[in-house]
Design a protein around this nucleic acid. Sequence first.
DNA 1: CATGAATGAGCGTTCATTCAT
DNA 2: GATGAATGAACGCTCATTCAT
Lengths: 213, 213, 213, 213
Amino acid sequence: MSVAQRRPVKRLPREVRERQILDAAVRVFSERGYHNASMDEISDVAGVSKPMIYAYLGSKEDLFAACIHREAANLLTAITNGVQAELPPDMQLWHGLLAFFDFVGTQRESWQVLHRQAISQGGPFSEELLAMRDRAISLVDTLLVRVATKEGLDDQSATEALAAALVGAAESLADWWLDHPDVPSKLIASRLMNLAWMGFGDLVRGNTWHPSD
Amino acid sequence: MSVAQRRPVKRLPREVRERQILDAAVRVFSERGYHNASMDEISDVAGVSKPMIYAYLGSKEDLFAACIHREAANLLTAITNGVQAELPPDMQLWHGLLAFFDFVGTQRESWQVLHRQAISQGGPFSEELLAMRDRAISLVDTLLVRVATKEGLDDQSATEALAAALVGAAESLADWWLDHPDVPSKLIASRLMNLAWMGFGDLVRGNTWHPSD
Amino acid sequence: MSVAQRRPVKRLPREVRERQILDAAVRVFSERGYHNASMDEISDVAGVSKPMIYAYLGSKEDLFAACIHREAANLLTAITNGVQAELPPDMQLWHGLLAFFDFVGTQRESWQVLHRQAISQGGPFSEELLAMRDRAISLVDTLLVRVATKEGLDDQSATEALAAALVGAAESLADWWLDHPDVPSKLIASRLMNLAWMGFGDLVRGNTWHPSD
Amino acid sequence: MSVAQRRPVKRLPREVRERQILDAAVRVFSERGYHNASMDEISDVAGVSKPMIYAYLGSKEDLFAACIHREAANLLTAITNGVQAELPPDMQLWHGLLAFFDFVGTQRESWQVLHRQAISQGGPFSEELLAMRDRAISLVDTLLVRVATKEGLDDQSATEALAAALVGAAESLADWWLDHPDVPSKLIASRLMNLAWMGFGDLVRGNTWHPSD
DNA sequence: CATGAATGAGCGTTCATTCAT
DNA sequence: GATGAATGAACGCTCATTCAT
């Protein structure tokens, strides 16, 4: 019925094509958003025909999920590599923050897909994200607990909440940073570090705030 | 021949119709997301025919922008009302936070539209949001500056960054709260207040953290 | 996003449009078969845009089902009208057959859709057909039973089987007739009538055949 | 660099491969219908790569035609073998019917492909079928003519029409039987035999029916 | 010889938008 | 003024078919 295929085509192993496709998808999803991204554009950018995308990575939803999965793994790896176990806790946190903001700064598209797109789609997408977020929180929590224990404090819920707030603040700052790209990443990181570490120090030392009314 | 049965139509003043439509739109946008919301469903929920929507509020994009605009104004008003000028700065911040989390808790749909939907659509939508955000940040900044000045500190960029981080953390916590609705709003607010106020206190007193390498 | 509608369009009441669409669909389905029929061609033939089809009659499957339903009802009505209650049984059967072959001859497309397409799709489509078929069989069976009872015979399963075979033979003959259109319908009907009526007469009188080995 | 692992492939003679492919095709076509059958599934079921199918049996249409051709030949052979020349005419017909219903019962897939699928695709497919059908009709006709001649009757068109009706009724009954598999095949065959043979007997003896108006 | 890799072409479906009444 | 009726345009997805290896 259809007489296909006119021009010669480079045959690449599946693995390579998959990476090409994922790269293109991340780019297009981050630029256009999930819904405005069309499979046609993705296939164009990838330099691959649409059927290949469906053959290798499934439906649009599947493709998006694969993007989220890969980028989330990359981000977590970057952070984990930044945090070096032999350093003192504050330096661990510091390098973790640096690694995070570095990822956001150098791979803006990846971060946009993760934070802006995945979260607003809800359902299975967000879950993958939330799982990664939880891992990040517990990473931070481990650090805080170590310090708190040394100081004799043992309020588990406090450190966990602080860790959650810290991660949240980092995300928000990163998001804000995307719209103010002229601020250097070290400055951003140091501001957050100060807020977190000093506030945490107060907490550890029992300095807390309560409403006066 | 045919005696056309015309169901009598309530003629309402334009203002009322517009509110009906916006209410319906906020509800549908927050439930389905921008793209999955159909003009048909919005017109159904509003009890108004589609051409009316186009006549009163323009295209789908215009309608969405109108939603964002109205809800953002509502949120800012709520916060501004919470902050009472005659109180000391810490209590002003505290009541501002309470007002914010109260808005998020009681008007979930509005918040979802604002934070989850508006952010993931690029362009004009985000801008409206960012404007409101900036107003919130400067509100907080004003407070912080007042305290800092009294203490003799005068690092403008520091208070502004702190304000930005605080607002970001609040948004992020609110977002997290949507998925954990059983946590009481006061607890959320107090955790954030502690982190912010104590960390800020340190900053004011010159206790800052610096990397040791 | 899309700027639609250039040329003036005749506004017709829904009922009329639905008939137009069904007429076109029957024609296209009978010509091309269910799968090779495209919604585009149907909408072209109907002189209506595709979205109208979906708005009025649903998916392709729904549309096909609606065709089957309408044509099956038409056929059954034609047969029922042909069979006049005041006539003797043989003449009732005769006029029923005439009506059937007349329908097949004058509305070839309808019959093709019913017999060739609906049956080969299976599932819900065939069921609608089988239901109609069952009504036809019981119509014939009623006739046969009346005669058999008058003659003192009371073998229910025999009349029913005969009725089923008769209906089946009629269908097959009709189908064969489509490929041999030069044979006059009356001749076809009379051949079948002879086979059925005389064979049935033998059965009633107890003349039956049994294998001799 | 890469030592390509080539799984050794069974080299089979063309004839065997072709049978494998046809077997798979008949199965898939009968299960899914012509259009819903995919070349991918056929090649999977056959255990042969798609290009082999195209090399050996041509396009999807060609493949389907080959299926029809083979199965039609098988059916006709089965019937011809059933009819044994030395028997009296009625027993020949009887055994022909038995052979037919036996084929339908034991090779349901083949029959479904032949009757349900081939018929609903127009054009060349139906023609192959009609040819086989004509051969079956003339087989029956030969029998009837022999009897009629012995009795002194010589109305050629009458026997031919009867033969056609008989074949049609048999097909139709077979089709009905597919949906009612609990009825024993002998009963089906005997009902049809009675109708045909007794009706034919009347015809031969000059007992015919004519409309009374 | 045998196949994994690749694609052109088309189909069913939806939706924002507007005109005739 | 208000709406039922109508559509252009695009999107996700599939499949028969073939070439490079």
